[in-house]
Simulated scan of single mutants.
Amino acid sequence: MGNVPELAPSADLVLPELLQGQWSSALILTFGADLGFFEAHLLSQLAAVPLRIILADDERLNEKFAEAVETGQRLRRANRTYVAAAIRHPGSAHAKVILLTAAREGLLVIGSGNLGHSGYASPGELWSVFRYHSEDPRHLSEFVAGRAFGTAPGLVDTRG
């Protein structure tokens, strides 16, 4: 693969364009999750990805599901073609991370935008992008740190 370009933090990065690639898993950590936006605008870009998981702040995610019931919004794909689960924490879960992985490469995006149009598809949010490839391990430590964060005990509510 050679040199993998490194992107510096950017205020005008549009994230949907970054999702392109042959990924085997996609993990999104977010405070607020606009699942309607995800289903309408991002899920098709991730259609070939077998494992798609969204982890959001438990209170915000519960509010979104309640809002969907009240307004008749159809989240037809949630917990069918992708997992939407709650991050349980005594405070709020404010992490904003996108992790895309394949057998020999990965993309780690850490920033300030929540999963939704204003956070992912419009300018104004700050993002740092790290790329890993087995032939260019320069960002391996960032991926290891992300893995340690994502597997912290008690982070995800598995009670159903």
Rank of each mutant, 00 (worst) to 15 (best):
V4R: 06
L7M: 15
A8Q: 13
P9Y: 02
V14A: 09
E17C: 06
L18I: 01
L19W: 03
W23R: 00
S24H: 06
L29W: 05
T30Y: 10
G32I: 15
A33Y: 03
D34Y: 06
G36M: 10
E39N: 02
A40G: 11
H41A: 03
S44Q: 10
S44Y: 08
L46S: 02
A47F: 07
A48D: 14
A48S: 14
V49A: 01
V49Q: 00
L51I: 11
R52A: 01
I54Y: 03
L55Y: 10
D57T: 05
D58I: 11
L61H: 07
N62K: 15
G72F: 01
R74I: 08
R77G: 07
A78S: 12
N79A: 12
R80K: 13
R80G: 12
Y82S: 09
R88N: 10
H89L: 11
G91V: 11
S92M: 12
A93W: 11
H94R: 12
H94E: 10
V97Q: 14
V97K: 09
I98C: 03
L99W: 11
T101C: 09
A102T: 06
A102S: 13
R104K: 13
E105P: 03
G106I: 06
L108M: 08
I110Q: 15
I110Y: 15
S112V: 08
G116R: 09
H117W: 12
S118E: 09
S118Y: 13
G119P: 10
A121W: 09
A121N: 02
S122C: 07
S122Y: 09
W127K: 09
V129L: 04
Y132S: 06
H133N: 05
E135P: 00
P137F: 08
L140Q: 14
S141E: 15
F143T: 11
V144Q: 14
G146N: 13
A148Q: 14
A148P: 11
F149K: 04
G150C: 04
P153N: 01
G154F: 00
T158K: 03
